[in-house]
Computed example of a mutant assay.
Amino acid sequence: MLTIKEIEEIIPHRHPFLLIDRVEELEPGVKAIGYKSITYNEPYFLGHFPEEPVMPGVLQIEALAQTGAVAILSKKENKGKTAYFGGINQARFKRKVVPGDTLKLDCQIVKQKGSIGVGRAVATVDGEIAVSAELTFVVG
């Protein structure tokens, strides 16, 4: 299991934009499974939405992308590099993510050629799909 400090050694994201609390499973270049505990104190809840706090869908996608970045950047040849978005395809939002939820983030790297690759990503809460997407990345 990777802690926040160990995650920070792999990806450049920092608080408040680091959206992974821990990584439970890691196979460098192949897959990563991480978690984000959603608390009422998240900065985005001040405006999204004050009467009904909901984690923005784009941040759910970002959390999945960061999980995929841990998988791809943990390969020796990618140490110290950054993974950038190249595209988001087939994104589907199935349920709201709210304070008290724990988001399970699963990203499988399904294709890579050179510096460009694709991850298949799914975030769940208590086994229920919150969001799924195909994420294209560029390592630079």
Rank of each mutant, 00 (worst) to 15 (best):
Tyr44Thr: 08
Lys94Ile: 02
Ile61Ala: 07
Arg22Ala: 03
Gly87Tyr: 08
Tyr40Gln: 14
Ile72Val: 15
Val23Ser: 01
Leu103Arg: 10
Thr102Phe: 08
Gly29Thr: 00
Arg14Ala: 02
Leu46Ala: 15
Val110Ile: 15
His13Gln: 11
Asp101Leu: 03
Pro16Gly: 06
Leu103Val: 01
Arg95Val: 00
Ala63Gln: 09
Gly68Glu: 00
Asn41Ile: 02
Glu25Arg: 15
Gly34Val: 02
Ala69Val: 00
Thr124Ala: 06
Glu51Leu: 14
Lys75Phe: 12
Gln108Ile: 08
Gly127Ile: 02
Asp106Gly: 05
Gly57His: 06
Tyr84Gln: 09
Gln60Lys: 12
Ala71Trp: 04
Thr82Cys: 11
Arg92Cys: 11
Pro28Glu: 05
Val110Cys: 09
His15Asn: 14
Ile20Arg: 12
Val58Asp: 03
Ala130Met: 00
Lys31Ile: 04
Asp126Ser: 13
Ala65Asn: 05
Arg95Cys: 01
Phe49Ser: 06
His48Leu: 01
Pro43Phe: 07
Pro12Leu: 02
Tyr44Trp: 15
Val118Glu: 11
Glu77Phe: 06
Thr3Asn: 03
Pro28Cys: 09
Thr136Glu: 13
Val58Arg: 08
Lys94Leu: 12
Lys111Tyr: 15
Val110Gln: 11
Ile4His: 10
Thr124Gly: 06
Glu27Trp: 13
Val54His: 12
Lys79Tyr: 13
Leu19Gln: 01
Ala133Arg: 03
Pro53His: 12
Ala69Asn: 07
Ala91Pro: 09
Ser74Asp: 03
Arg14Cys: 01
Lys94Glu: 10
Thr3Cys: 00
Phe85Met: 03
Ala91Arg: 12
Asp126Trp: 10
Ser37Tyr: 15
Gly57Ile: 00
Ile20Asn: 10
Cys107Phe: 11
Ala83Pro: 08
Glu42His: 12
Leu46Glu: 15
Phe45Arg: 09
His13Phe: 04
Thr124Pro: 06
Thr124Ile: 04
Glu134Asp: 12
Gly68Pro: 01
Arg95Tyr: 03
Leu59His: 10
Asp126Thr: 07
Leu2Glu: 01
Glu27Gln: 15
Lys113Ala: 12
Ile88Gln: 07
Ala83Thr: 08
Lys31Leu: 13
Glu8His: 11
Ile4Cys: 05
Pro16Gln: 05
Glu42Asn: 09
Lys76Arg: 14
Leu19Arg: 04
Lys36Gly: 06
Val110Gly: 10
His48Lys: 10
Val58Gln: 04
Ser74His: 10
Gly34Leu: 02
Thr3Ser: 06
Leu135Arg: 09
His48Tyr: 08
Val98Ile: 13
Met1Thr: 13
Ile61Leu: 14
Phe93Ile: 00
Glu128Ser: 13
Ile72Tyr: 11
Lys96Asp: 09
Lys79Trp: 13
Arg22Leu: 03
Lys36Met: 04
Glu52Gly: 11
Gln60Glu: 10
Gln112Ser: 13
Gln112Gly: 07
Gly87Ala: 05
